[in-house]
Design a protein around this nucleic acid. Structure first.
Length: 515
RNA sequence: GCCCCCAUCGUCUAAGUGGUUAGGACACGGGCCUUUCAAGCCCGCGGUCGGGGUUCGAGUCCCCGUGGGGGCACCA
């Protein structure tokens, strides 16, 4: 369809990797892979004030975990490095000066204080905040001398005052802006480092980027970037501005303040590290974010990374903003969880059991349990809650469990005395089961249910609560089989004791009442 | 205040260049299956923001409203 694309993800190390960045990286990666091109990672760290220690590692770790691998980057190098802008500082001044020489930029000596006052005045007058062109009028020769004399300065873009500029966004088509609405943006700061506008243009050109995929928040300065390409006389990349992510309500972009609210709704959040810790699979996250702002057809929704590489295309990108739907992430997580092989799932579960306190559990230990829980967990983190008791020697039986799941349960409604009698029979019968496996256990208990005239649901519920101490568990017979005969009988005995205690106090109470 | 972008069920979306009863998914409601909980299957609910045009015909093209989003830093 097209030649190899060179794409990049160019985050600034000012925070953790979130779903917005991950999607931009994913789409860039997919395009490169699909076309047989390269995907690269470039760190845009020209603002030392906002640098967040650890964020660069988080960005890389998150991408790697998602399976978004770069061919060139700060860690692996490449033919167009370095890939960290702070290490390319020397380059940008040269290009800024080239623009000054060509008459597309100029030196500005205005102090931050003067600029602040200027903006304040403009705001009071209801004017748009814009550089007033004070230094634009300076004689170039004189300005150069002041710079050479060491006077603090910045380099500003000399935006045309007349006419319009039209940039072409791949998704939206032509975007036209009046030049008078474009500010004389600073390109090179007084510390000698470039602003985003200069750095991104210079680096994308030097690194031979063919397609720029970035967030729609860049749409407003997009015409400036087009101007810069033209001023340099460089060929523009294909511009693709990805739709923004809105918070679940659809009202506004997700900000840090909204994170608390999202967590309160029971969701893990928008940072990749948090989603990972909450037990979401990278497959599910990729699938989920890929479908925000992009679609394949009118029905296909399940995609592996391989599928995405084959099927992704820029043509099917959408310009409209998308509200994130965390329920749908849960859905995709379930889908991908169930698509995993038991071995794979067991392996991925290990760290979650360790974190839950089952520190010696191995993938081999988990393997027989996996089939019992694979359709029952939404996230990896759900598993220890559901199946942790397989690794306990003893458990806690509570009267409340019997009350809630036997006595009060709408579909069970089993009184304690009946349950007690039945469970004593169960105990006897289980002793005879040999070999101890799910089939034999089921046969024995079904036969008993028949003999006792107790509906399977009632008897099995009683067994479930009495053995496991809980009303919800993996399938009963498989669970007992895995627990083993000794543990099953021991726990059942403990359950019977609790039940006996409940019956005793019930009798006391009924005797006390009439007196 | 100024500039730019966007607009199909509550949410994510499909309906290549205007042409059947606007399709799918999540969520929600109901049912089936069933030893609990899930998973799975079936059914249902629900939408083209409003108004003007163009056209035999508009979700699709144009204009105006309205709504939403983004931006207006020596931040990215």
């Amino acid at each position: 369809m097209q030649g190899p694309a060179r794409t990049r993800f160019a985050p600034s190390p000012t925070g953790w990797l979130h779903i917005g960045g991950a999607r931009a990286a994913l789409f860039s990666f997919l395009l490169a892979r699909k076309t047989g091109g390269q995907f690269l990672l470039r760190i845009e760290d020209t603002d030392r004030k906002r640098y967040v220690p650890g964020s660069e590692e988080d960005l890389m770790e998150g991408l790697r975990w998602l399976g978004i691998h770069w061919d060139e980057g700060p860690d692996v190098g490449g033919p167009y490095g370095p890939y960290r802008q702070s290490q390319r500082a020397h380059l940008y001044r040269k290009y800024a000066e080239e623009l000054v020489k060509k008459g597309h930029a100029y030196y500005c000596f205005c102090t931050p204080e003067r600029l602040r006052r200027m903006r304040e005045r403009q705001r009071k007058l209801g004017l748009p905040p814009r550089y007033d062109g004070h230094c634009r009028r300076l004689d170039p020769e004189e300005a150069r001398k002041r710079v050479e004399a060491g006077e603090p300065h910045v380099v500003r873009f000399k935006a045309p005052r007349e006419g319009t500029i039209t940039g072409h966004d791949f998704i939206r088509g032509p975007i036209t802006v009046a030049n008078k609405d474009i500010d004389d943006y600073i390109l090179l700061k007084s510390d000698g480092l470039p602003t985003y506008h200069l750095a991104v243009v210079v680096d994308d050109h030097l690194m031979r980027i063919t397609h720029v995929l970035r967030g729609a928040e860049w749409l407003s300065t997009f015409p400036l970037h087009v101007h810069l390409y033209r001023a340099f006389g460089w060929e523009e990349p294909v511009w693709v501005h990805l739709s923004t992510f809105l918070k679940p309500s659809g009202k506004g972009k997700i900000s840090k303040r909204d994170m608390e609210e999202i967590r309160k709704m029971g969701y893990a959040g928008v940072f990749i590290r948090d989603l990972r810790e909450a037990g979401y699979l990278p497959e599910a996250i990729n699938n989920w974010i890929a479908l925000m702002g992009w679609s394949y057809d009118d029905r296909t929704e399940f995609f592996t990374m391989q599928d995405l590489i084959e099927k992704f295309s820029l043509e099917r990108l959408k310009p409209s903003p998308a509200a994130v739907n965390f329920d749908k992430l849960d859905h995709f997580n379930g889908l991908h969880l169930r698509a995993l092989s038991p071995e794979d799932l067991a392996r991925r579960l290990v760290p979650f059991f360790h974190k839950a306190g089952y520190t010696h559990v191995t993938a081999e230990d988990l393997l027989p349990i996996v089939p019992l829980i694979q359709t029952r967990i939404h996230t990896l983190a759900d598993a220890p809650r559901l199946a942790g008791f397989f690794f306990e020697e003893d458990i806690q039986h509570t009267p409340e469990a019997f009350e809630e799941f036997l006595v009060r349960h709408k579909k069970v409604k089993l009184d304690l005395a009946t349950a007690y009698r039945a469970l004593q029979k169960v105990y006897q019968r289980l002793q005879e089961v040999d070999p101890w496996n799910a089939e034999n256990l089921e046969a024995a208990l079904r036969a008993l249910s028949e003999e006792l005239g107790l509906k399977p649901r009632k008897l099995f519920s009683a067994v479930r609560v009495a053995v496991t101490g809980r009303g919800v568990s993996p399938p009963l017979f498989e669970t007992l089989a895995l627990l083993g005969k000794a543990r099953t009988l021991r726990w059942l005995r403990q359950g019977l004791e609790v039940l006996a205690g409940m019956l005793a106090s019930q009798t006391d109470a009924s005797e006390a009442a009439p007196a």
